[in-house]
Write a protein that binds this DNA or RNA. Sequence first.
DNA 1: CTGTTAGCGCATTCAC
DNA 2: GTGAATGCGCTAACAG
Lengths: 338, 338
Amino acid sequence: MATTPKRRLPVMADVAKEAGVSHQTVSRVLNDHPNVRADTRARVEEAISRLGYRRNLVARALVTKRSRMLGVVSFDTTLYGPASTIYGIEQAARTAGYFVSIVSLKSLDATSVRAAIDYLTEQGVDGVVVVAPQRSAGRALESLPSGTPAVAVEGTHRADVSVVCIDQFEGARLATRHLLDLGHETVWHVSGPPDWLETEGRLAGWRTTLEAAGRPVPPPLPGDWSPRTGYEAGRRLAAMDEVTAVFAANDQMALGVLRALSEEGVKVPDRMSVVGFDDIPESEFFSPPLTTVRQDFDAVGRRCIEALLRQIDSGPVAYERLVVPPAFIVRSSTAPAR
Amino acid sequence: MATTPKRRLPVMADVAKEAGVSHQTVSRVLNDHPNVRADTRARVEEAISRLGYRRNLVARALVTKRSRMLGVVSFDTTLYGPASTIYGIEQAARTAGYFVSIVSLKSLDATSVRAAIDYLTEQGVDGVVVVAPQRSAGRALESLPSGTPAVAVEGTHRADVSVVCIDQFEGARLATRHLLDLGHETVWHVSGPPDWLETEGRLAGWRTTLEAAGRPVPPPLPGDWSPRTGYEAGRRLAAMDEVTAVFAANDQMALGVLRALSEEGVKVPDRMSVVGFDDIPESEFFSPPLTTVRQDFDAVGRRCIEALLRQIDSGPVAYERLVVPPAFIVRSSTAPAR
DNA sequence: CTGTTAGCGCATTCAC
DNA sequence: GTGAATGCGCTAACAG
């Protein structure tokens, strides 16, 4: 049956024999224990490289009960936001000496999220970060076995799960305020899909700013983050003469709006100003270049790992809520009202 | 020291005691062995759920020498291509019952790639897929310990490493041919960064098609995938009166070209036709909507996992080269030559 | 059908 | 400083 002779990989005992010491001592040099004489250490290290020995982290994890592996559960990692966040997480984790095991879900319902977390737990991750921007996902976190180190990106209000998020409200306020300061009577909004925390935060920031300024609050146009829904909203906006300023909940929808406006002959920013959210790499080259709100996903990733390691190293900690501030980027898609 | 009493998680022995059987029988029901009486199985399953038992896959991996974990090494997972490929890989892997551990590199030099693979190997992955679109990364694969199941996306020519790739040459041929068929005398090209296999494949497809048609081959304008370099190329192109058709090596650069052309008052597609490559979600809403070459990243991910599992399950196999065909998407950025 | 006996490769007591 | 036991939680033989 077995066609391959498959020579066994060297284990610690082989190194020990080769170096003429006990496997114990090998373990010591591998883990930088102080109590090893310099020349013994050298002998062992030489044996290691001669045999091409690589330690077996699985066996190590079994006894230490630490896998040095973190789990990440996320929704559609093809989107710019999640992809960037995960990239940040992975970089920070690896710097701290941890691996990252990823599960990308097609749907963020409570059942899927729970299954993903269970899956990761069985596999022995030391902690998990859930990139769970939807309310339903946040609820799934509530059933997480207490004691498991966990961090959520944008979500949940469970007392022992820390949260890292970008200040959506503030970002939306910045966008709306910018448009108002430009002299626009009010600002229309193309929102994200319901149940998303980002959608709610941006909606609230926009609405509150308008109300605080005593301006009328037009009904938000619903979108789903895709350029297509932005395009559809754009068509409707173009048909309404009184509209002079639009705040789209993300850059992709803003692109759709721009496209619809261009088709309808509505000049941006002359007749209408448009603001997005995210600052994807493409935004700077839209026609016209998009004024938008930049999110620092790298910082989010770093904060997640910091918070998670804090829990892993010192046990349950007080609930934390780490808020990363957004930045406002002014480009050419906005101008003073006529 | 230990402030938390930390109740130990239930292990197989606990379940066994609870169900009044041996831990072996528990193992049998967990692994769906046939030789277990129905009522015994039921008792065990009940005990499992009563205790909230979760099996320890680390211990399992130690004895089976199978971690059911795959490693992925990739470059900048923030880019649409890598992100989509990894998404496809993760989906396919999970369907097959495997986890995916990801390492995203900032630079794909041979040293980094080798370190990443070593890292993953120590950690006990059953196989690795390297999303290594650069020549230098391919070379790193050549030092991979023989016998390790591995698959490369776009790269390497090592005899025992299978490759999955999209037919770049054909995609570029389609794009160039389309422009030529529209009556353009020749086609200019904004290329990707050197050392990338995609860059070379697209360059070759473009050049060969031009030569086969007996057309002049203009010097390619160098880019680095970013919209900015496309923009710079666009400025130069706009300044040359004879240019009527441009093929950009990716959609982001095409966006930059479009932006530059728009600034210079060069109408697309009236005075100049533009084609991209990738079909990112935004392309359909560029101004004008972009004619481009679509890559099926999901298929790439699936093929990778299929090839990898084939190696894992049946040992080293003959070198395979799986080529995924591209699709050509005609939109509004191309038109007949004046 | 089910239980018993051995390890998987390593780190962690302890001795010396 | 170093070596000898012991066991992490599980599956793989082999009994019965």
